[in-house]
Design a protein around this nucleic acid. Structure first.
Lengths: 233, 233
DNA sequence: CAGTGGTCTAGACCACATG
DNA sequence: ATGTGGTCTAGACCACTGT
């Protein structure tokens, strides 16, 4: 009658989550062994294993050999952030994106930057500032430093037309990045460029990027008051 | 001579990432079919499949049935955020955590809240405000609304000693949450509680929580200037 | 030591999307 | 129509770790 032919790992996941939510598998308690569950569901252990592995990834379960699988006493809270790629973010709203370079300068890394990136003091860097507009309204101000040793071609690039992010993605597509978010008050320069009052609260987003452990770039974006970063979920 | 006995999906992943970073498998290009790769690595397709599936999860690859596996033209940037559980965050720094309720009030949901949570207008809610201290210095101000229908026991709870987050986790351990971050200026009340000047830039973190689609709670946390949220990576 | 999860193999069928 | 990934089965050996 039913259409059940084979049991999918999705089925196992669904039912397992149901049991966790219902408290049938209570927080902290140990689940039956994979072989047991496989027997109950009439599927192979491989299938159960995949289901349980994913549930562990998702923060529901904790697994240890010999000790077994247990329901996380307090659920692991994790959220995925989609990284704001400014151009796409603006165009997704239907607005027209515009980039404008403010300044570009090659110089020796100041101490704070060298310390932050782990560069030798005085290493060559390029300092770049730029504005991003949505339909000609200010959207974000970018303040970026690029490690010349990591991307020698940056010495020849003026960034007049192409934003540094898009340029860098062409040069070094795959990098590791660390982010942080905070609130800062607009100083006179930021206030002018963003068209807000001095002291206005801005969301600042730092981004540190490495390629094979080598620091590539450190960028700070300042967003207009009211802008929010959201999780996908 | 070598110790190679079997090929692990980790080996496949490692080598695949290496090839992507080296440009051997260039952005946008199509990889050989799983059966081909399995032949090359002298392992089963199952093993290749797991490696490729995880690399797709991690943002390196894009997979489609028939079309095959290709290297993401521009890498998918995603970051994992560990959710700030204030008590743990404070205690992790070695500071002493202290919670203090500011106010608690049962009332009908105001329109903006009903709209935001998807409640019927006038639904019963509890409004709670509280302070979180680190070593008796202000750390964050919490402004929270709880849907009584989702957690009837909240009607009996005063939150004098136990913070709402910890209480809620006991009541409903497994929930779905959506977050957003932004910058706001401290109003007079926030300035007083946090010990900063009015207008100071504060990081605000919203958190909307549901259980089986039912809205449970909406909370906003305001953090002192200087506070930053970081990704794990 | 012994039990549990971690992983690989070998083979099969299926679903989907492209041409 | 056909090729590619998606998934399941059945069985095996191994690695870790609690007792």
């Amino acid at each position: 009658m039913g259409k059940a032919e084979t049991v999918s790992y999705r089925d196992v996941k669904r039912i397992a989550v149901e049991r966790i939510l219902n408290g049938i598998w209570a927080p902290g308690s140990v689940l039956p062994a994979e072989t047991e569950i496989a027997k109950e569901f009439a599927c192979t252990r491989t299938t159960v294993n995949r289901a349980m592995r994913e549930l562990a990834d998702e923060g529901y379960l904790e697994r240890k050999r010999k000790a077994g699988t247990r329901v996380r006493p307090s659920p692991l809270r994790q959220a995925k952030l989609a990284i704001p790629l400014i151009r796409e973010e603006i165009e997704a709203t239907g607005a027209r994106y515009r980039y404008a370079r403010v300044s570009r300068e090659g110089l020796a890394a100041p101490d704070w930057l060298a310390a932050r990136l782990g560069l030798e003091p005085g290493a060559a860097v390029v300092h770049l500032t730029a504005m991003h507009y949505a339909d000609d309204r200010p959207f974000a101000f970018e303040d970026r430093w690029i490690n010349v040793a990591a991307v020698p071609a940056v010495a020849e690039e003026g960034f007049e037309d192409l934003g540094p992010n898009e340029w860098l993605v062409q040069q070094i597509p795959y990098t590791e990045a660390a982010f942080s978010f905070g609130a800062v008050a607009a100083d006179a320069r930021l206030a002018e460029f963003l068209g807000v009052a001095a002291g206005a609260p801005l969301l600042s987003a730092d981004r540190m990027t490495r390629f094979r452990e080598v620091p590539v770039t450190f960028a700070v974006f300042y967003f207009l008051p009211g802008y929010r970063v959201r999780t996908d979920t």
